[in-house]
């Protein structure tokens, strides 16, 4: 844990501990310090620290109930933190710091902070009464005030990018899960976010549809998008992530380069989790193999 005390008064209220590295190019895009969160007295996050730099892909791993999804939701204020601080691009998330005294932001200010953060949900959450194209156009037109023509052109471009250029007029109910999730990614990208949050984007998908979504995410990472991904896809974490964080019981147990954490875990809890994931993976692979074996 960092030794920066969160109550330390800073001369530059909006930047906090970032102030000292402000001139440096290495100022993290996301900085979380000692993030605390409880639900009805149940401590879900017990002091999470995390730095995410521009262009970095960070995967959050861990068993369900470890708090990784909650932490992700705290970054764009779908949950409000009880303690600690989160900064995105130097702005304190959710609060205004006036000489050490925090003030809650208004609904409008909260909405403004979320504009630059894209989010992709486990259950897609596409707007079912709108076509794929309308889903992608909605936020630029309503929130940014982009002209319809321009928004439409950009939306078609984004649908093309996620491989759905041929389905702009389909309603979500007419699309497969993988297609829906790709529309959801395009919808988030339409706001030109500087950060993308993925909350178990492939967990609700049939196994054969996982690949198409991961492929889109991989391309996005290659283009230099800063991404925080909560996932159970070890292969994706190993190949794409710059940094993986293993969480359990509301704390960060272990973090580092993917090949270190995934291939050579130090902590018992990480080892146990990875072993469990691996055996499930092997079982699935064995199943697949037995299916592929030609019948005599």
């Amino acid at each position: 844990m960092s030794d920066t005390t969160t109550s330390e008064p800073t001369s530059e209220p909006t930047t906090g501990p970032d102030a000292r590295s402000r001139t440096g190019e290495d100022r993290p895009l996301v900085r979380a310090l000692n993030v605390l969160k409880s639900f009805h007295g149940n401590e879900v996050l017990k002091g999470i620290d995390l730095d995410v730099h521009r262009g970095e892909v960070v995967c959050l791993l861990g068993p369900s109930g470890s708090g990784k999804t909650t932490f992700l939701r705290c970054i764009n204020q779908l949950e409000q933190i009880d303690g600690g601080r989160i900064w995105v691009d130097g702005d304190l998330v959710g609060f205004r710091d006036d000489g050490g005294q925090l003030y809650h932001l208004t609904d409008k200010q909260v909405a403004a902070q979320r504009r630059d953060i894209g989010m992709v949900f486990q259950r897609f959450n596409l707007f079912p009464h709108m076509t794929a194209l309308e889903n992608v156009m909605e936020a630029p037109v309503q929130v940014r005030g982009t002209g319809k023509k321009q928004a439409k052109a950009r939306a078609l471009e984004l649908l093309e990018q996620v491989g759905l250029g041929d389905k702009p007029n389909a309603y979500p109910a007419q699309l497969s899960g993988g297609q829906q999730q790709r529309v959801a990614i395009a919808r988030a990208l339409a706001m030109d976010p500087k950060l993308m949050l993925f909350d178990e984007p492939t967990s609700a998908l049939d196994p054969e549809l996982v690949g198409e979504v991961l492929r889109v995410m991989r391309e996005l990472a290659d283009q230099g998008m800063t991404m925080i991904v909560v996932t159970h896809e070890m292969g994706f974490a190993r190949d794409v992530a710059d940094h993986v964080v293993f969480m359990d019981g509301g704390v960060v147990v272990e973090e580092g380069k993917p090949k270190d954490v995934i291939s050579n875990p130090q902590h018992e809890r990480t080892k146990a989790f990875l072993k469990r994931m691996r055996s499930e993976h092997d079982e699935a692979a064995a199943d697949a193999e037995s299916l592929e074996t030609p019948k005599p």
Binding site: L78, A111, R114, M119, E138, V143, A188, M191
Partner: peptide, 13 residues
């Protein structure tokens, strides 16, 4: 989830 998706896109209430 619909409200959350709208909020995540920066829409106000």
């Amino acid at each position: 989830g619909q409200n959350e998706a709208a909020a995540a896109l920066g829409m106000n209430r």
